[in-house]
Each structure stands twice: as structure tokens, then as C-alpha cells.
Design a protein around this nucleic acid. Structure first.
Lengths: 261, 261
DNA sequence: TAAAGTCGGTTCATTATTTGAACCTACGGT
DNA sequence: ACCGTAGGTTCAAATAATGAACCGACTTTA
């Protein structure tokens, strides 16, 4: 792992639940020498990617990420483009829908909507990375995102989040093959208890998927009929997102997706 | 300059006007060896900070910046906090108002508003970094942002953008001292022709400024009376932004700002 | 109140990573 | 068939990253 990667990975420890992180906590999280972490933090700070609270000395994300996000969204308004599709799909299904993109071994949420009539809802955080092997999004990505991603994933041992998570490389490979055949991925409580999710890949120009569109719902609301309905709509969502990104659905998926208009 | 900084600086070449950049263009812009740039780009890509167009092979900003911006704004909603103040001030003055934060030798726009009745308006891009010595924001920051910033700036030669830009270290130091005394900074066509701007520092906890609030308008609309009105309101804006960020205006500014409520 | 622990930050010799000239391959134009 | 330019790769040489030990300030504990 290069120096740049080590430094950038530090930024991923920030989340809704960890808005500020001190030096020692960074050291513990990243399992690196304190001096190394400190120097990396200094360079990140010099470039505005983090800033330090003058009193508590804790670090938080800096203004640079806001500016770069503005540039990205102004020049390549992917979030805005998918938002209407995701909103509409969430409204139709009455469940949580999200589009996520592959990013350095995880799925990175791009946009989500949860326009729904039910009392219970699935917790979802747009700022939190999703693991590949434990989520339907990740599994769909592994199936259609090119071989490099799968090989990358299997280098390290896989975490069992719930007791239901698929963790053995053999099972992963087998399931990924199944996803390739059926054109969608399912995850039953692979990441969070009581949560069931389904995902299909989305594409821009090029044969490999860049991300996924997924639906997540409480296990209790799942019936055969609901699953069928969601899957059909999800495939259509996959088509729509792919189109709005200027891509085309690969021929190998046409068979599996023929039930969607 | 460390490896991390070199890599992060590459991201700053992206802007509204340069949404995609190829390897050779990066090499030219950064004046580094092609192999070095390439490896840096690879690491940035592996971490989702940039992505590569599969066809044109050009690079663009990646999904990671969006995610991190979401985390930052969810945990530390500075943009949202200042937006109401900036909107209101822009409405009152009928001119462009922006809040910008210091970031690695430049001012990084955080939020801007241009609610105004006039036909001509000042061009402003929230995704573009502002130079320190040529803008009122930068000069206000130099005056109140701590000594490190000024020393940092004077290490490299300063660009003359319009023929009116202050570029000599002696003049900069002299003007910065004046800004400290009067509590605000002016820039007459220092960055863009025909544009006049005024800025005051804003603070969070701590004695040094973290950014500025500024007004920019066409030179043609500037009168003594307008300038007076804007300055008074701007100081009030500086107070308001400082308050909403949980900071306090330093005592050394109280004298210069006493005309604002 | 003295000792022990924790925190952010610093130092310097050792080590490993970054670096860049040269090279390779593919493509579009002439 | 040639040239120029593009993205990408290689390997020895050089530079930058590393981490154990250290420092001073502040808290906790006995």
C-alpha cells in the first residue's frame, strides 16, 4: 500500500458516528505508527482535506471535500441524474432505494430515497461505505464489475457481520456466478439483522459495471410477490440509471432482464 | 513537498472548465514526470477520488469526494449554517456575497449567493480556488489568519492577474497591516478586471480566522455611499457567521467593527 | 501530592518507497 | 510507411517515509 493510499484511507474513518477523530484514535483505527499517522494528517490538513479543532485537537473533514464535490457535481451531475429515478422507484415500491458506486473495495452510496408508508424503515447512511461481500449491492458489483474487484476482495479475510454473512471465498465465488446468471443479487441479513436487500448493476460507457441500484426492506415485509415486484422494477431501474449515465446494458444481461420492459 | 501533497494537488486541477484531464495534460499542468503523475493518479483512482473514462482514458473526480462531502456536511453543516446569512446579505445589498475558507494556500468558496436586481453580475464559481494576494477574501485572511499563511504565500512569486494586482512582498505586508487596522480588505480589480470586492474575516473557536465573508460587484456600481453601506453590513455579516460557527470576534477587531451593530 | 497513564507532538538513524530516463504499444493523421 | 502523440511500464538510483524512543502538558488515581 502506497503512502498516498495510506493517507486517503484515513479519511474513511470519518462517518456520521465519528465526526471528529484524535491522533491516538487514528493510530488505533489504522494500526500504524503514531508518527506516521501524524505526518499523514498534517499533509491532509495542509491541503484542506481535514481541519483541526483548535481546542480539542481532534481532526474533522475539511473544506476541500466540499469544494471538490461541488466541482464533480457541477461537471458530472450523476447524483442529480439518478435522483429522479431513485425517488420515483422508492415512491412506487414504498421502500428504501439507493444507487451506490464502487470505490476502493467498498460500495459508496451516491444517492438514496426512502419515500414509504410503513412504520419501520431501514437505516441508511449516505456517508457510510458498504462492504462488498455482505450487501446485495456489493455482490452485484462483484458479479459485473470486472475480475479485479473480486480478486482484490479475496486477498483479505471477510468479516461476518450478522452470522448470516457469506464469508468463505468458495461460497462467494459460487454466489457471484449465480448473480451473473440471474442478473441480480440478494442479501438476506448479510450486513444488518432483519434487513433484506436486492441489487442490480448499472453501467456507463464500457462493459464493466460502475455501481448498483438496490432496494432494502425489513425482512418482515418480504413475500414472494413483493420480491417479484421489486426485482422487475429494479431491473427497470438498472436500465434507467444506465441510460441516464449514457451507458448501455450489456448483452449478457438482456436474457436475465427480459421481464423488465 | 511530500508525496501525499503532490497527489492531492492533482485534484485541484479539476474545475468547471476542466472537468476531465488526461495523463499528458496532468503532466504538463503539474510539471512532474509522467510516470510519477501516473502512479499518483492510479492511487487516487483506487481510492475513488478520481475515475477514468473507459473510452477517452481521461480522468475525472470520483465518487469519494461526494461521499466525504456528505459526511462533512451532515456532521458539521457549515455550508447550511452560513447559507441563510449569505442569502440574506445578498438580498439586502443586491450584490454577490460569498463565504470562503482557507485551504492550502488558497481561499476555497464554501457558499455564495447572488440575489440581485442588476443586469450585470460578477462571475463566481464555487468550485474554483481564489488566490490570496489578488482577492479581498485572501487579503483579509492573510491579515487575520495567523502568520504562517503570509510566510507561506511569500515563498513563491506572485502572479499579476490584471495589471492592478499587488505582487511585491513589501506592498503585500504593508497592505495586510492596513487590513489589520481597518478590519476589512478591499481589492480593486486585483483578480478580475472591472470587479471590486470587500471582505472581512470570520472566526470559529480560536484567535485566528478560518475564512472570510465577501461582497463583489462591478466597478461601475461602486460609489462612496455604496461602499460605506456594504462595509457596515459586511462587518455585521462577519459577526453573524462567526456566531453561527460558535466563535467569537477577537477584541482587536471590536474597535474597527464598532459601526456594525 | 506524587506517581502513573494519556494525549498530542517531535527526533533521527534506518529502511523502503518514490522517482524519472528510457522504453513499449496503440492509434490517428499524412 | 512514416511521424507525432497518446497512455502505460521498467529498473537502477535517490529521496522520502518510517518507527522506537523521547518530550511536555494535562488527568486520573492512590
Amino acid at each position: 500500500m502506497g503512502t498516498i493510499t495510506k493517507a486517503l484511507k484515513l479519511l474513511n474513518y470519518f462517518s456520521i458516528h465519528r465526526a471528529e477523530i484524535g491522533l491516538s484514535e487514528f493510530k488505533a483505527l489504522s494500526v500504524q505508527d503514531k508518527a506516521t499517522v501524524y505526518r499523514h494528517l498534517c499533509e491532509l490538513q495542509e491541503n484542506g482535506f481535514i481541519e483541526q479543532d483548535p481546542i480539542s485537537k481532534n481532526y474533522r473533514l475539511g473544506p476541500a471535500v466540499l469544494r471538490l464535490a461541488t466541482v464533480r457535481e457541477q461537471t458530472f451531475p450523476m447524483r442529480e441524474a439518478v435522483s429522479t429515478i431513485v425517488d420515483e422507484l422508492s415512491r412506487q415500491l414504498g421502500e428504501l432505494v439507493h444507487v451506490s458506486l464502487y470505490e476502493g473495495g467498498y460500495m459508496s452510496p451516491l444517492y438514496h430515497a426512502d419515500i414509504q408508508p410503513h412504520g419501520t424503515r431501514v437505516y441508511f447512511d449516505e456517508g457510510e461505505l458498504l462492504p462488498m461481500h455482505a450487501t446485495s449491492s456489493g455482490l452485484a458489483m462483484l458479479a459485473f464489475g470486472g475480475d479485479g474487484i473480486l480478486n482484490q476482495l479475496l486477498k483479505a479475510p471477510l468479516v461476518d457481520f450478522t452470522g448470516h454473512t457469506i464469508t468463505s471465498p468458495k461460497d462467494i465465488k459460487q454466489y457471484v456466478q449465480r448473480v451473473r446468471d440471474q442478473g441480480y443479487a440478494l442479501s438476506e441479513e448479510g450486513f444488518e439483522k432483519e434487513v433484506f436487500s436486492m441489487a442490480v448493476p448499472v453501467f456507463n460507457q464500457g462493459e464493466v459495471s460502475i455501481g448498483t441500484i438496490a432496494v432494502a426492506l425489513p425482512h418482515s415485509r418480504l413475500t414472494k410477490a413483493v420480491q417479484e415486484k421489486i426485482l422487475t422494477q429494479l431491473k427497470q431501474g438498472g436500465r434507467d440509471v444506465t441510460n441516464v449515465l449514457g451507458g448501455t446494458v450489456p448483452e449478457k444481461l438482456e436474457g436475465a432482464w427480459e421481464d423488465a420492459v
